[in-house]
Structures are given as structure tokens and as C-alpha cells.
């Protein structure tokens, strides 16, 4: 035993192997099963992919580091569910490359933000948060309204997403630029293709109120309005849990009772 270790250690290479071996086990054990598991990701047949405009908006969300202050992960705790809505399911972020669960809530969680406020509210809030919420400490993002969105390369973005496993069709990739255009210009000829490819429920609106061009504001608001709305799975699961947990919910005494631990 000792002799073996001494040899390992004397030749630095053996020592290196020992460190790699020791250190890699934990990661393998924890991560490897997540790739085979089907149960970690629930079924959501209604789940749709991000439209090119929403994806561009998501990239702006990433670029501006919004995730540094806003989580997109409602934990299975009673107060969180009451404050933000049904707890987040794994399936909801299955097309999120990368995920934006976040680690800090300087601002509130955004996992179920979509549809909560009007487009106009979002635009006003992003231009100057303190116009809408006087106590807010969020930075101003006025330039989003001034910047044109780069849409000519969205096809390449969709192909890259496809390469990492998101089911974009060739048609979606080919029409990416037009679809981004169409989603924010409901009266244009391109609008129809968007609902054809991404579903009738897709928001097709002039998000920033300006019909003359596609701005970064359009993209970001389109993304914020779809948060938590790509699938109904979480609401369905919540409805299922609700009936079985009604009694528990009645008593309401626990401040942070883990919900859903029974479901897991």
C-alpha cells in the first residue's frame, strides 16, 4: 500500500492520475445519471421552442446580465409558489442553452413573468424603472429602444441551437430572419409564417410600439412575455397537486413547507 503510494508520488505522473481519479468521481456520479434520466425532465408535449425574436431577446437578457439579479427558478417552497406561481419544472428549461436559473434575487423571480404586465409597462419600465416603480434599483435600459436588433444572422443562431439539440426545423432556420421581422410587425406579410411555424398562441405584436423597425426592445419584451409560457406543464402539475394537498394548504401554518416533495 505504502510502497504503491510512494511510487505514485515519486513519479509525479502517477500523482497526477491519482488527483484526477479522486476528483472526477463526484462529478461523474452526480452528473452522469442526469443525462440518462427521463424522470428529471417531465413530459410536455405542448412545449414549443423559442421564436427567433424571443431567442434574440433571450440573448439580450444574457448580454445585459439580467440573470445576476433575477432568478428564473421558483423553488418548491410554499411562500415562493404563492408569490411567483407554480414551482418550476425541469422540462420548462429543456431548451434553455444555457439555463438562466440564477443565484440571486436582488429583483424578483421572473420564471412566470410572461403575460403579467403589458408590453407598454415593460417598455416604460426598461427605459426608466423608477418611472414605474419609484423604489426600484434596476439600471435604465433606454438604449434598447434606440438600438436596431441584428436579425440577419438569426438563422445561424437557430442552427447552432439545433446542433446542441433543440428541435428547430430546417424551415424555421431558413425563415429565421423573416420570422423575427414578422413577429413584431403583425400587419406585414411575414407575420403569418410565425404562427404557422411556432403555433397560434405565439405573441405577434409591435412589442415596443414602434412599427417602423425591429429594436432590441422588441426582442427583449417578446422574450419577457414568453417566460413561463412555453408549456402548461407546471400549471397542470400544480392543479394535480392542489387537489391532493388541499388540506395541507388550508392549515397554511408552515412558512416554508416544501411543496412537491411528495410528488418527487
Amino acid at each position: 500500500m505504502s510502497e504503491l503510494h510512494r511510487k505514485l508520488e515519486r513519479s509525479a505522473v502517477g500523482f497526477v492520475v491519482a488527483i484526477i481519479f479522486m476528483a472526477s468521481i463526484g462529478g461523474l456520479v452526480e452528473i452522469a445519471p442526469l443525462f440518462t434520466i427521463d424522470e428529471t425532465v417531465e413530459d410536455a408535449p405542448d412545449m414549443r421552442v423559442y421564436t427567433p425574436l424571443e431567442l434574440a431577446g433571450r440573448n439580450i437578457y444574457i448580454r445585459e446580465g439580467c440573470y445576476a439579479c433575477h432568478s428564473q427558478m421558483i423553488r418548491t417552497l410554499q411562500d415562493e409558489v404563492e408569490r411567483y406561481g407554480p414551482y418550476s419544472l425541469a422540462v420548462e428549461s429543456q431548451y434553455d442553452h444555457p439555463m438562466l436559473w440564477g443565484s440571486k434575487r436582488t429583483g424578483p423571480d421572473l420564471a412566470r413573468l410572461g403575460g403579467k404586465y403589458s408590453d407598454a409597462w415593460h417598455v416604460a419600465h426598461l427605459i426608466n424603472p423608477r418611472d414605474v416603480v419609484p423604489e426600484s434599483v434596476m439600471p435604465k435600459y433606454g438604449w434598447l429602444q434606440r438600438n436596431d436588433l441584428r436579425i440577419d444572422d438569426l438563422g445561424a443562431h437557430l442552427s447552432a441551437m439545433k446542433a446542441v439539440g433543440v428541435p428547430y426545423s430546417d424551415e424555421m432556420i431558413a425563415n429565421a430572419t423573416n420570422d423575427a421581422f414578422g413577429q413584431t410587425l403583425p400587419d406585414s406579410d411575414f407575420a403569418e409564417g410565425v404562427s404557422e411555424r411556432y403555433g397560434e398562441e405565439t405573441n405577434i405584436r409591435e412589442f415596443d410600439g414602434d412599427t417602423s423597425r425591429v429594436t432590441e426592445m422588441d426582442a427583449l419584451v417578446a422574450y419577457l412575455q414568453i417566460l413561463g409560457r412555453l408549456t402548461d406543464a407546471a400549471y397542470q402539475q400544480a392543479a394535480g397537486n392542489q387537489s391532493s394537498q388541499d388540506q395541507q394548504a388550508q392549515s397554511q401554518q408552515a412558512q416554508s413547507q416544501p411543496l412537491g416533495s411528495t410528488a418527487k
Binding site: 462529478g27 452526480e30 425541469a90 422540462v91 428549461s93
Partner: peptide
Amino acid sequence: KSYSAFSGVQDAMTQWW
């Protein structure tokens, strides 16, 4: 710009690992 090879829960686990 690049897109992470992992998504969702796998990405979260990899990231915090």
C-alpha cells in the same frame, strides 16, 4: 456568441459543479 452544449437541469448541475 455560443450556445452551451447543455440545457436546463443538466446545464444547472454542470454549472454549479
